[in-house]
Each structure stands twice: as C-alpha cells, then as structure tokens.
Design a protein around this nucleic acid. Sequence first.
DNA 1: ATCCAGGGTCTTA
DNA 2: TAAGACCATGGA
Length: 265
Amino acid sequence: MLFNLRPPNNPVDLDLELTMESGQPPHFLWDHACGRHTRIINGEKAEIWMEKGRLRFTEGFGDYARELLRLDDDLDAICSKISTDRTMECAVESCAGLRITKNDPWETLVCFVCSINNNIPRIRKMVRSLMVDGEVMPPEDMAAKDLSGLKLGYRDKFLKGCAEKVIGYEFEKIGLMDYGEAWKELQTFPGVGPKVADCVLLFGFGFLEAFPVDVWVLKSMKRLYGAKNERDARGKAALMWGEYAGYAQQYLFQSERSGCLIPKG
DNA sequence: ATCCAGGGTCTTA
DNA sequence: TAAGACCATGGA
C-alpha cells in the first residue's frame, strides 16, 4: 500500500527520516535501521519507509500512518503561515518535509516525563527500558512494577505518580478540552510542568497551538525575538504563529540544534 | 572537574 | 510573580 501525498509525489511534503528522528516521540518509540522505521502496534509489527519518493507501510496500518504523520495537515499552507520573517523562512527551508507527529497520549506522557533535564539519546534509553513487548507498559503495570534499577534518576517517582493518576482517570478527556484548560489540567500530574504539558498536548493530543519551550527554543526566542523568559516566549509565539505555533516550534528546535538558524533579517 | 541535557518542585522574598 | 536550591545520570 502507499499514500499519494499532497501534492502527489512531492518529496518536500514529507521527510520521513527527519520527521521520525527529530526528538518527537517516534524518535524514542520506533526502531530505525536501513531507512525503515519499525515498532509493535497493538501486538503487531508495523513498518514505515519511503520508496521511490512515496510513503509505504505494512499492510493494514494505513490509517495509523496517516494519523501518526498527520498526512491531512496541509504542510505547504502551514509553512507559509509560520514563515513570518526571513529567519522562519530559512528554518522552514532547511527542514523541508518536517512534520509534527500524533502519538498515543500515555506513551507521549511517559516520553516527556523521561525528557526532564535530559538529553535525547538517554531519553530514548529510558523510554525503551519502560517498554515491554515493543510497547510502553500500560499505567497499571507501571504503577505496580519496581522502577528502581532502570536508571531513571529522580524521574521514577514522577512516572509512578503519573501512572497512578492515569488509572481510573479519563485521560482522553483532555483532548476534548480547550488548549488553556488542558494545559492547566496536565500540570496537575506529577512531573508535568509548562514544557512537558505542551509536549504532551502537541505530540499526544494534537494541539497544534502548543508551543513547548525547552532550552533550545528558549535560546532561539531570546536571540531572534527578544523574549525575556519562558513565559514571554510562549506569549510571543502565540502572537506570531497562533494556531500553528507547534509547527513553528519544531522548525525552530530542529534549526537551532543543527546550527542552521540565521540571526535575524 | 565542570557543564549540559526537549525541567519540575519546593522554598523564599 | 520571580528567583534560587535541589534533584539523578551520563556524555562532552
């Protein structure tokens, strides 16, 4: 099976490698070898790869791939809207085909609790230590299991706390709230502050207006737009990029890390 | 040895 | 509301 991307056969519409390896949940949850991305979904092996400029995936995972890669997002239109100045134009150009991914909320929460004051390679190691049979262990198992010995640092108690809170809690209801309400609600979870909440809302619940401010994005927002602090960065992002601030954030994050972000023009 | 990493919590002023 | 100590771990 394959998808015709919009516009059809336009390779700029999806850079699968970049998207899957850009510090989003798939970077932590999927295996990656020989240009193929693999993991277990609902007990079955799923595989995604590019072939002759077209997206391919294991039979039966078409709907999953479409949701994961947000193939219904009009990337051209979104990139136009966030290209508010020369700097953002360059960021968008240098990361052509980078898409926001939509992941399972619980797995996303686990990923970004592990991300606290941490680096991407070690986040991946931690998340994988919390996976059983290819999937992040469900809240019930995480609440019951002894996490000491997994080298999670002080994050083990946060993960335990989140697992216990999610049990008997309609986690999906957060996706039905408006952004502001959902942002505040998520921060009642142990280990979830403003940044982790925005990551879970963006990558787990699909709120494209969420703007996670980590050290890289904060550095960009200070240098490029004179942001004074984290809160100020969020405010400026909301004003400049509004409903697509999440996409702007991912292009900023990727560009800042790869060092291809020009000062400002 | 010191700094840093997709930060949060808690205390203090 | 804002700043600072503290938190575990491993790589640079």
